[in-house]
Structure formats: C-alpha cells, structure tokens
Write a protein that binds this DNA or RNA. Structure first.
Lengths: 108, 108
DNA sequence: TCAATATGAAACCTTTTGGTTTTATTTTAT
DNA sequence: ATAAAATAAAACCAAAAGGTTTCATATTGA
C-alpha cells in the first residue's frame, strides 16, 4: 500500500503503463497485451499506481477501465525543480523552448 | 549496481542525502550525523547514488568527500515534463477528457 | 611508532518487491 | 441456461532492498 509516488515511478513497467495510459485509457487486458508478463503481475502494478492516485480504475461491466490521473507527478516535478541548476544548459534550454512553445499554444 | 536514477531517488533517505549535498559537500561522517541509522547504511545509500552518477565521492586523505552531481536528474525532469499537462493546464485537461470520451464512444 | 579516525567490505537478517500459479467471482454472449 | 471472458484474490516463491554487526585497511596526529 505504497502511497509514495517516487516509489511508484521507480519501476520501468509502471512508467510504461503510465506512458500507455497517458495516450489512451484502456482496460486491463489491453494493458497486459503490451507486456510479456502475466495478467496478475500487470494488475498488481496497476494497483500500486491506483493506490498512489496516478491511475484511476473505473469499473465498467466486467471490465476495469484504467485512466491516467497524473496530477500526483507534480510532487516529483516540484522536488526535481529545485535542482534545475545542476543539470546542463542544453537541457535547460530545451525545457525553455518547450515552455515557450507551451505558452505560445496557450495564446493561440 | 543500479544505474537507474528513478530507482535511486525512490528512497527517502537518498533524497535527503541529495538535499543535504546540494547545499554543501561533506564527508561521510558528517552525512551520517544527519540520520539515525548506522554509518554502513548511509554509506550504502551514498554508494547507490554514486553508482548512478548523482553523487561524486572524492577521496581526500582518509576521508571521502561527497559532492552532489545532479545532472542525472535531468532524465527524470524530461520524463516528467511530457506529463506536465496533467497537473498544469485546465485546457489540456479538457482535451484529455474529450479524448477519453472519444475513445469511449469508439468502444461502444 | 602507535592509537585513534574514517572508511570499505563482508556476512548476515528481515521485509519488500515483482513475479508466478491456482482458484473464485462477476458479467456477457450465445 | 450455460460457456466464455474479465477480473480479483490468495498462496507461494526468489531475488532485491535496507538495515545490522563484525572485521579489515588506510591515514592521521600525538
């Protein structure tokens, strides 16, 4: 019952699940089809993500629809942000460019 | 020998070590004095951080001076950044809802 | 020189993690 | 009505994580 987002995103399978769900919500079986492990294994990962609020599982008939709810990543973003000065100018510049692009899109 | 930065920052003790070293480099014993656990335990955490490049350990006489080298956090920042819309932007969130709705309609 | 200091390394232990197989339950489709 | 499908839940297992104690080694200071 790990409420810890840092812990939740430590596992590569869970990061992949996040990536998949951020594109498109889907049920558990569809999710499983992306991995080589068994269904219960994926279900456990989803459970961990759901426990810490990064994924919402909606009961829909006999299926369970999984949606990304990535607001919790903000906590990580905030922690990371205080150390920005430590990584290189290129990355900073890249982020600036991405940010400017975001701002531009918002204006339009 | 975990080269994985996501794994490295999952542990709260290691995040605290990062926080301390980001303010000021120091040797292992000074670091240990901030925690309630034994020296070897802290040393192991430092080792993990050093293995993935987040900390540089400089041999200085019989001491080991630890410096923060947090460039590796950029990888995490970049990963997080792609999901910024999930906690930042109402407009983007609306888009997500619309997209999910579309997906729903396709299924039905 | 030699005791104290700062550390590394090894052996060990317990809990957690990430996976499996098996069984049960609910819902849907024929 | 019943078989198939989607899932949950439980029992189990091996490996990894996070800690300890103990011992060894290199460096410093008196």
């Amino acid at each position: 019952m790990s409420k810890n987002v840092f812990q939740a995103i430590a596992d590569p399978t869970r990061r992949e699940i996040i990536g998949l769900l951020s594109n498109q919500s889907c049920n558990l079986n569809e999710l499983v089809s992306n991995f080589s492990m068994t269904r219960p294994a994926v279900a456990k990962h989803v459970r961990i993500l759901s426990d810490c609020g990064l994924v919402m599982v909606e009961k829909r008939g006999r299926e369970r629809y999984c949606h990304a709810r990535l607001g919790g990543l903000g906590e990580v973003a905030l922690w990371i942000h205080q150390y920005r000065r430590f990584w290189n100018d290129n990355l900073d510049r890249l982020e600036d460019i991405l940010k400017e692009n975001d701002d531009l899109n918002k204006k339009q």
